[in-house]
Design a protein around this nucleic acid. Structure first.
Length: 303
DNA sequence: AAGAACATCAACCGCTCCAAA
DNA sequence: CTTTGGAGCGGTTGATGTTCT
């Protein structure tokens, strides 16, 4: 790597002046940015292209919203961070007019601290206190949901690609390197599905079929599927799930179970061992999942 | 009032990814 | 297949502003 070009060429660093801003905006408005590397000379700026790009993207672009984050935006950031981790650019795609840099700063200076104060680990999004003693049912459910979402999204790239291959009559090859950013599903859509399930359960609407989000889930296997039957414990070895059901109160625990069941069907290890990380070596893993869901299942519609 | 401590955020740096040669 | 260079990403820094003592 060595020293940066700006050091070698004696280019200006540090805060931008209004005159520099004016030159950059004027040039881009007239010519577009084109090659960032070539831009500074053409625009008459003593800056490196990288610095120009950053200034434009994070500050000067006309479609940027600045100022305080709304509650809705905060919630979205927290939820997406639980799903995606520090992938700020991916998070930013779900927050119109906000930049990844701004979101990253806001997370580091506000949200991270707030979660920590609330006793939630900002990295894992798990509660630091024992679930059964100190948290409300609602919080327990939310924590469990976030964990499940995180698991789900770790698999979503694979499921998405796998399903595409099935769709085109190809033998699925699970290979991490074959995925591109464009193939990734919208994580916010995953959230919407979850929220749809949870909301209709909590609002006591009885049959899920009344909500659009459940329609998405109900397409699994091309027929209506009762969510609670998605992944009933299959063996006495499946103690984790069974204990959860037996050890909890009725009501929210059914929801926990529903959620677990749904997630497990998509992301759990085929042997009931929990998910595993070297999934690209295990084609059977995805074959089993697809067997459970049926080849006509609309995984892609869920993601 | 002063300066120390803390908070904020624009900007930089090093790295990876990917397309083109 | 390998090399090269541009673009973009995430972590970090440091200047500036604000609050605390």
């Amino acid at each position: 790597m060595g020293r940066s070009p700006s050091f070698e060429k004696g280019l200006k660093k540090g805060p931008w002046t209004s005159e520099e801003d004016r030159k950059l905006v004027a040039y881009i408005e007239e010519h577009g940015h084109g090659s960032w590397r070539a831009l500074p000379v053409k625009a008459g700026l003593q800056r490196c292209g990288k610095s120009c790009r950053l200034r434009w993207i994070n500050y000067l672009r006309p479609d940027i919203k600045r100022g305080k984050f709304s509650l809705q935006e905060e919630q979205t950031i927290i939820q997406l961070h639980a799903l995606l981790g520090n992938r700020w650019s991916a998070i930013a795609t779900h927050l119109p007019k906000r930049t990844d840099n701004e979101i990253k700063n806001y997370w580091n200076t506000h949200l991270k601290k707030r979660l920590t104060k609330m006793g939630i680990d900002p990295i894992t999004h798990k509660s630091r206190t024992p679930v059964s003693t100190n948290l409300s049912h609602m919080t327990q459910w939310e924590n469990a949901r976030l964990e499940a979402e995180a698991r789900l999204v770790r698999r979503s790239k694979v499921v998405s690609n796998f399903y595409q291959q099935i769709h085109h009559g190809l033998t699925p090859i699970i290979n991490k390197s074959s995925f591109s950013q464009q193939q990734q599903p919208s994580c916010l859509d995953v959230l919407k599905v979850w929220q749809g399930i949870s909301l209709c359960k909590f609002s006591n609407v009885g049959e899920f079929k009344t909500t659009p989000n459940y329609q998405i889930v109900s397409h699994v296997n091309n027929e209506k599927v009762e969510p609670t039957t998605l992944n009933a414990p299959e063996s006495p070895n499946d103690k984790g799930t069974q204990n959860k059901v037996e050890g909890c109160d009725l009501g929210y625990d059914q929801d926990n179970y529903l959620m677990e069941a749904f997630t497990n069907n998509l992301v759990n290890d085929a042997n009931g061992q929990g998910y595993h990380d070297d999934f690209e070596d295990d084609n059977n893993y995805w074959s089993n999942i697809l067997d459970k869901l049926g080849n006509n299942s609309s995984i892609s519609s869920i993601f």
